[in-house]
Simulated assay, not measured.
Amino acid sequence: MDMQGTRQLAITQQLAWDALNDPEVLKKCLAGCDRFEPTGDDTYNVGMAVKVGPVSAKFSGKVTISEMTPPSGYRLAFEGQGGVAGFGKGSSAVTLTPNDAGCELGYTVSAQVGGKIAQLGQRLIDGAAKSMADDFFKRFDNEMQLRHAPPPADAEADAAVAPAEGGEAATDEGAKPGLWARLRGKS
């Protein structure tokens, strides 16, 4: 299986690089991943549940990063065993190119699968791989928005002291008055 694509990211090249090298971010963004642990220089043990068509399995494996050129990209190799469901192994190249909107992430993946998963047929495998990639990028975009999105334009106005019902500033244990009024539904 071979796959390639690009995604526009609304964050800087450096922020994308940092996130793509953070095991916790990767664990959150890979659906079914319950383990993404460093084991040495640029090597990680990974555990994740994968479902391809009617075949579900818990895969254990490792990811090794190489040819790093911070913050522009790297290559990685992966391999995993899913018991009787089969195995997966392959490599990927990731590039980050800055642009006016943030940066563009480019990727290529070359992978092989074996066992029961391989018996499902190439179209089903390719569809599952594309779905996993789309899900990763959706989760990655959401995580980056949570971590790096600028505050809403009206956040400063809400933080200012605003009179609550009756003309007095409402507070609760040091909460910002604008927020407190909004939480009470009286803004």
Rank of each mutant, 00 (worst) to 15 (best):
Q81L: 13
G32Y: 01
M48P: 02
S56V: 00
D41T: 08
V46F: 06
K51V: 02
A49C: 03
V84D: 13
T69C: 02
A31H: 04
Y74I: 10
G61I: 04
A77P: 11
G61F: 04
F87S: 15
F78M: 14
V84R: 14
K51I: 00
T39G: 11
E67Y: 04
E79H: 10
G83H: 08
T39K: 14
G80W: 01
E37N: 07
R35I: 02
F87V: 07
G86M: 09
I65Q: 07
Y74S: 10
V55N: 03
S72I: 01
V63F: 14
F59K: 03
S66I: 04
T69R: 10
V52Q: 01
V84A: 15
V84S: 15
R75D: 13
G83N: 12
K58R: 06
D42C: 11
T69V: 04
Y74W: 09
V63K: 15
I65Y: 09
V50M: 06
T39D: 11
R35P: 02
T43V: 14
E67I: 03
P38S: 13
F59H: 04
M68S: 07
A77Y: 13
F59S: 02
E79R: 13
D42T: 06
G73A: 13
C33T: 02
L76D: 12
N45F: 07
C29V: 00
S72H: 11
F78C: 12
D34K: 05
E37W: 02
I65L: 11
V46N: 10
G61W: 05
N45A: 14
F78V: 10
D41Q: 11
A57L: 02
G53T: 05
F36L: 09
V55T: 06
A77G: 15
S60L: 05
T64R: 13
P71C: 10
G32V: 00
V63P: 14
P54F: 03
E67G: 10
I65A: 07
S56G: 13
L76W: 13
K28Y: 00
K62D: 09
V52H: 00
P38I: 05
N45P: 07
A85W: 03
Q81T: 11
A57W: 00
C29Y: 01
G73W: 09
T43W: 11
T69A: 09
T43S: 15
K58D: 01
E37T: 07
G61M: 07
G73S: 12
A85Y: 04
I65F: 09
V52A: 03
G83S: 12
P71S: 10
F59T: 02
V46G: 11
A85K: 05
E37D: 12
A31T: 05
G47Y: 00
G32Q: 03
T64H: 13
G83K: 13
E79W: 06
A31W: 01
N45M: 10
E67P: 06
L76K: 14
T43H: 14
V63N: 14
T64L: 10
Q81E: 15
E67W: 03
Y44R: 15
Y74N: 11
T39S: 13
A57E: 02
E67D: 11
L76C: 14
A85T: 05
V46D: 08
G47V: 01
V50T: 04
A85S: 15
A77V: 15
M68I: 01
S60M: 07
G53C: 08
P70R: 12
K62V: 07
G61E: 04
G32D: 02
V63D: 12
G32A: 07
V50L: 09
